[in-house]
Structure formats: C-alpha cells, structure tokens
Amino acid sequence: MVGLNTNDEHGRPVVLLADDERAITDNLGPFLERSGFSVHVVHDGAAALAAVADVDPDLCVLDVMMPRLDGREVLRRLRGDGRHTPVVLLTQVGEAGERAMALEEGADDYLNKPFDPQELIARIRAVLRRARPGRPPLATEGVLRSGPLRFDRVARRAWLGERQLTLTPKALTLLDYLLTHPDELLTRERLLEVLWGFATPVGTRAVDNRVAELRRLLDDDPSAPTWIETVPGLGYRFCGRIERGGQ
C-alpha cells in the first residue's frame, strides 16, 4: 500500500493537475503554485496514472472528461491498486446521484465546472487536512460513527444510541456529507449543490430547514452543538469526532 508524499523539497504539498483543457491548466497551474503548492500538470488519464507512480503526489485534481482514461477510471484504478492518494474530481455533471457515485468510488471531494479557483484551493486544503497517510477517504467507509451517532452508509440507516432515526432522503444525504467532511466549513451554497444539484431552483433557506430537521432528530442544541455547528453568515461545520466502522 502506498502512503502520502510528505511535500516537495521546499515543504510545499505536491498536487497533480490532470485536465485536457489547456486553457484551464495554463491558468490554474500557476495559480496553484502561487497558492503554495508544487504542481505537476498532465493532459490525459493515462499520463495521470503514470505521473502518480512517478511523482507520488500529496493530492490529485482530476478532470472527469479526459481522453485515453477519464478521471473516474483513473480514480478506480488508483483505489484498486491500493493507493489512497486524495483525489478531487472536476466534474461537469449537475446530478447529485452522479456526484454521490464518484464519492462512493473513492473521491475525497468534487467541484463542478465552471468553478472559482479560490474554491478549489479551499477544497484542496480541506482534503489535505483530513487525509491520513495510507488510509482510504471517509467517503469509502461503509459505517461512520460520532459518539452515540452511527451511520451505515451502505444501508442508508442511522442510529442515535439504540434508537434508529427516521430521516428523509435529503436529511440522509446531508448527514452523509457532514460525516464525510468533518471540521470543514460547508457553505449553504455548497450544501445546496450537494442536496439538490443545479436542476432545481431552490433557495438556501431549504438547506437551513434540512439542518434544522437533522438537529431535531439528533437532539442537537444549536447553541451548544455536539455535531452541527453554525458558522454565522456562512454555513455549517460538523464538529463531532469521526470514527470509522463499528457495529
């Protein structure tokens, strides 16, 4: 099993950027460099696989739609080879189901095109903060726990202690995303994208309603949260400690 690299000779995290759109890599590569990363650029999936073996990056940014091998196939091969290098996918798919599938296949996060480069930087830093050398991403775990809260991501069922929770599909999706992105600021806009995608014209108030639903079921006090913390004016953060597996 291959672990994570420990930065370049200057102490910068090494990022592999794979995208066949040179207009993107020509601008994004230097931007990532200016933001404190050492960047290696390739333009197709086969070259990305070869570069991972050669460079051993700390993180890969993979475009989904690439020639030779698409980004999701690169991801599947990396995970199949036992490589747990963190991966952020650049997608052009608005459907929440497609994005959820990418996460289940082992992606650490995704970003829909077109995107703000600053948002990509934020995602990269968040993924690197929660990455553990040699450990698969939380999104590949079947069961996640936080104190008395247990969530079976395969069966799509959750328990608080011995009590099984009755959650709506949106609340289940929200809980899943919170648990797999702990200690990360999740804006309302981000959660809106996760829960509804881009096809449905829903306002951010709908996100607040789903968070309120989840808090009621978890008996989570917003003024002294055990799990879901409000970041005033911005969004939410899962503040509970995450553990993998468990019965």
Rank of each mutant, 00 (worst) to 15 (best):
residue 2 V to H: 15
residue 5 N to Q: 10
residue 5 N to C: 05
residue 11 G to E: 06
residue 13 P to E: 13
residue 14 V to P: 08
residue 19 D to M: 13
residue 22 R to M: 09
residue 25 T to D: 07
residue 27 N to G: 13
residue 31 F to V: 03
residue 34 R to E: 15
residue 34 R to T: 08
residue 42 V to K: 07
residue 49 L to W: 01
residue 53 A to C: 07
residue 53 A to L: 02
residue 55 V to D: 02
residue 58 D to K: 03
residue 61 V to W: 08
residue 62 L to C: 04
residue 66 M to C: 08
residue 72 R to T: 10
residue 74 V to K: 02
residue 75 L to W: 04
residue 78 L to Y: 01
residue 80 G to H: 00
residue 84 H to Y: 06
residue 87 V to G: 00
residue 90 L to R: 05
residue 94 G to N: 08
residue 94 G to A: 06
residue 96 A to K: 10
residue 96 A to D: 06
residue 100 A to W: 04
residue 114 P to W: 03
residue 114 P to C: 07
residue 116 D to W: 06
residue 120 L to S: 03
residue 122 A to C: 08
residue 123 R to D: 03
residue 125 R to Y: 01
residue 126 A to T: 15
residue 129 R to Q: 15
residue 132 R to M: 09
residue 132 R to V: 15
residue 133 P to R: 01
residue 134 G to A: 02
residue 135 R to C: 14
residue 135 R to M: 11
residue 136 P to T: 02
residue 138 L to Y: 07
residue 140 T to P: 08
residue 141 E to Q: 12
residue 144 L to Q: 04
residue 146 S to W: 14
residue 149 L to P: 15
residue 151 F to N: 09
residue 153 R to V: 09
residue 153 R to N: 11
residue 159 W to Q: 09
residue 159 W to D: 10
residue 160 L to Y: 08
residue 164 Q to K: 14
residue 167 L to F: 07
residue 175 L to C: 05
residue 176 D to T: 14
residue 181 H to N: 11
residue 193 E to P: 05
residue 193 E to N: 12
residue 195 L to M: 12
residue 202 V to M: 14
residue 202 V to N: 11
residue 204 T to S: 13
residue 208 D to F: 02
residue 209 N to V: 15
residue 210 R to K: 13
residue 210 R to N: 13
residue 218 L to A: 05
residue 221 D to F: 10
residue 227 W to D: 09
residue 228 I to G: 03
residue 229 E to V: 02
residue 232 P to T: 11
residue 236 Y to K: 00
residue 239 C to S: 06
residue 247 Q to G: 12
residue 247 Q to D: 12
